[in-house]
């Protein structure tokens, strides 16, 4: 029987889950935990961009805008209106999702490089609004003093508390995005990417699929932004630049465009590498640049390409 046996990826996921839960018990260094927390946030970002750019093939250069909108909505709600963490967190996601709808709509008319440059422009417009709408966002002064998250009587304060909060959101995002990516819906998105006309002929309303992919991707980026705002307790427009969009894109591409395990691995590498090379001081970005070039020359479709990922997902242990 083909169906028997246990999927390898499930085993790996289980091991990673257990490792993730035990991690703070094994490593007590607050710095390492902080870096891991940031890495988890990046994983959510890169997975969400992977849905838009990898799976649906919409080359998107403004992901930091979603991330920033989520962060600012959560920060402003909690600092100015003192709303609860859960509300601000969800509002951050929904707000970003709404911006995703705005950016997703031009996909109806624009494609390829024209769409790319539009997303770039949207990203910059959002950043410039954050920077210049001083009466609301405090502009370049940023928003300090974002309170500790509190829900159901639990107060998140230490790095380890944040670790479990972010880890929980990460697991949730992985499960939801995994379900989306490897489902019929995901298959349709991939069909649109490969041949939109053919997809249309099959009666698929491609517009709705493309726009919803943008909205879902933006929603998760917004949630990541809200987490980041609470985690860092201070945000400013400096964190949501075009360079950050490119950084997230690089994670997706290096990991493997269209592949979820790839997006995760890419985020892990590109979030850790600048930290790992920190001792090189002014030389470290030279190494990071070379690393990026090296990886992509070595594996053209990323470390775990889409095909590899799908093969990997079908690997089984035991049974036959």
């Amino acid at each position: 029987m083909e169906k028997r046996g246990f999927y390898l990826y499930k085993l790996i996921a289980l091991i990673l889950l257990v490792l993730g839960i035990l991690f703070p018990l094994l490593v007590s260094d607050q710095y390492v935990i902080r870096i891991i927390n940031m890495t988890f946030i990046y994983i959510i970002l890169s997975m969400s961009l992977n849905l838009i750019t990898g799976v649906t093939g919409q080359f998107h250069l403004g992901h930091a805008a979603f991330y920033g909108v989520g962060a600012y909505i959560a920060a402003l709600l909690s600092v100015k209106l003192h709303v609860s963490f859960l509300f601000a967190f969800i509002a951050g996601g929904i707000g970003a999702g709404f911006i995703g709808l705005l950016i997703g709509l031009p996909t109806i008319r624009l494609r390829d490089i024209y769409l790319t440059v539009t997303t770039l422009g949207f990203g910059e417009i959002v950043r410039l609004i954050l920077l210049n709408w001083v009466s609301v966002t405090r502009g370049p002064m940023g928003i300090p003093g974002i309170p500790y998250p509190e829900f159901f009587g639990i107060k998140i304060m230490s790095q380890i508390d944040f670790y479990y909060l972010i880890f929980f959101v990460l697991i949730l995002s992985v499960v939801v995005l995994f379900r989306i990516t490897y489902s019929r819906y995901g298959d349709i998105l991939r069909a649109i990417r490969e041949n939109e006309l053919a997809a249309k002929t099959l009666g698929i309303n491609t517009t709705i699929y493309k726009v919803t992919a943008f909205v879902i991707g933006a929603l998760f980026a917004g949630l990541a932004g809200a987490l980041f705002a609470y985690f860092s307790a201070y945000i400013s427009p400096d964190s949501f630049t075009f360079a950050e969009s490119i950084n997230i894109l690089a994670m997706v591409v290096i990991g493997g465009l269209g592949s979820m395990p790839g997006a995760i691995l890419g985020a892990v590498i590109l979030a850790l590498a600048p930290e790992a090379f920190r001792f090189l001081a002014e030389y470290r970005m030279v190494v990071v640049g070379l690393l990026m070039l090296g990886v992509i020359l070595w594996r053209h479709s990323g470390l775990i390409g889409e095909q590899t990922a799908i093969k990997f997902m079908n690997m089984k242990i035991g049974g036959k």
């Binding site: 690089a250 591409v253 465009l257 002014e282 970005m285 640049g289 990026m292 479709s301």
Partner: peptide
């Protein structure tokens, strides 16, 4: 990368760009 996906080239040039910028910095 001529037969690879366009995004691969983009990241390769991004790597070169980062390298050159910091090389000039040094």
């Amino acid at each position: 990368l001529r037969n690879a996906i366009p995004e691969a080239t983009l990241i390769a040039t991004l790597g070169v760009s980062t390298f050159l910028k910091e090389f000039a910095n040094i």
